[in-house]
């Protein structure tokens, strides 16, 4: 059965000022895929993601989400985004964890209307899923790095998105929490069928867990990840000939099925 693409990017170009950050980017992402976006610093990963979501203007090309051009897209309840540095907010901001997670339902609630009981039930579910229910009444500025991260993911999943986009979701989070977090993403992908797009610096995580990798260094390169994939060969295209990829196979979970 043919799976319809949920995101289609064709010949995308994005400029920041006079410099071109992303050019000739073309790829499709199908429903239920778990896609990693990797690339060197300044290679345009965040720019690519923000342009695809319509947060940055594009200078060329087309972006379609669920078959609709991004310019006309209005079904935002189907998408959630956890940006890079999401947790770097003003710690004085008086939001509790529950209030933050409830923001995730705004895309589904009517403008100017209060959240309904079912919205609050989803908020509770999202907090339970992320194991932060005990922090519901706590101010987000008082949470640890890992707790903040989970609160922001909970805000995203409270929306019940069909596409979840995460930019460097575990930056600054300790390894034990990272492990739980990636397990959670796999669960969302496998159990709820959520399409996940995750920008990451951690190449082994991307090649171990995700079904496809989009490499960005101004241009984009896309490859499937399976037993026959040679990460080094793929990544040399993006990072250059001097790149050497050390692959810790024992760390792998997910797509190679050795969990």
């Amino acid at each position: 059965m043919k799976v319809e693409p949920v995101i289609e990017v064709e010949n995308l170009e994005v400029k920041r000022g006079a410099s071109t950050v992303v050019s000739e980017a073309s790829f499709k992402i199908a429903s239920g895929e778990y896609v990693g976006i990797v690339g060197p610093n300044g290679g345009g990963k965040t720019t690519l993601v923000e342009a695809v979501l319509g947060l940055l203007p594009k200078t060329k090309g087309t972006v379609k989400i669920f078959g609709r051009p991004i310019e006309d897209f209005d079904q935002w309840e189907r998408i959630a985004y956890v940006p890079q540095h999401a947790t770097n907010f003003d710690e004085l901001f008086p939001l509790t964890v529950r209030e933050l997670v409830a923001q995730g339902r705004i895309g589904r609630a009517k403008m100017g209307r209060k959240l309904r009981r079912e919205d609050w039930e989803k908020v509770t579910e999202a907090m339970e899923f992320l194991e932060i229910s005990h922090l519901a009444g706590k101010r987000i500025g008082k949470l640890s790095g890992g707790q903040k991260q989970r609160a922001f993911i909970a805000r995203a999943i409270a929306r019940e998105p069909e596409i979840l986009v995460l930019d460097e979701p575990v930056a600054g989070v300790d390894p034990s929490v990272q492990e739980k977090f990636y397990k959670l993403l796999s669960d969302l992908n496998l159990k709820k069928g959520t399409t996940i797009i995750s920008v990451s610096h951690d190449l082994s995580v991307v090649f171990c867990r995700m079904s496809r990798v989009i490499c960005v260094n101004q241009r984009t390169y896309s490859c499937e990840v399976n037993e026959g994939t040679d990460p080094e060969k793929v990544l040399r295209q993006v990072y250059g000939e001097h790149f050497h990829f050390v692959f810790h196979r024992h760390e792998c979970r997910g797509v190679f099925g050795n969990e």
Binding site: E50, L53, G54, L55, D74, W76, E77, I79, A80, Y81, P83, A86, F89, F93, L95, Q103, I106, G107, M111, R155
Partner: peptide, 13 residues
């Protein structure tokens, strides 16, 4: 939400 995270507000329609 607009005050806290403008991009998230945009992505909430």
């Amino acid at each position: 939400v607009l005050c806290f995270d403008e991009n998230f507000a945009k992505l909430s329609g």
